[in-house]
Amino acid sequence: MPKAKIYVTFKDGVLDPQGTTVKRALDKMGYKNIEEVMIGKYIEVQIKGTDKKQIEKEIDEICDKLLANPNIEKYTFKVE
């Protein structure tokens, strides 16, 4: 069955308190090369169907309606 691998991340300019805190911890641990840390979500969806275009359309729709909040988040996905 096709599987969609979905990544939901914050839009540029939206504060990510978790990422900021992890970045600070890494700084304290001595990792000097870390420029930025962003924490997002990874979601897997198993979906019925054979038409890849149709599947992508449906996944895009559910990302937009539920899995991501377009006010603060963006998403990317790939169907395998």
């Binding site: 939206v14 504060l15 990510d16 308190p17 978790q18 805190t21 909040n69 006010n71 603060i72």
Partner: peptide, 15 residues
């Protein structure tokens, strides 16, 4: 989330 009010909520800056 329902769009009855504008904007969104993030986790508190203190986590």
């Amino acid at each position: 989330e329902a769009g009855l009010l504008p904007g969104a909520m993030l986790t508190n800056k203190t986590l």
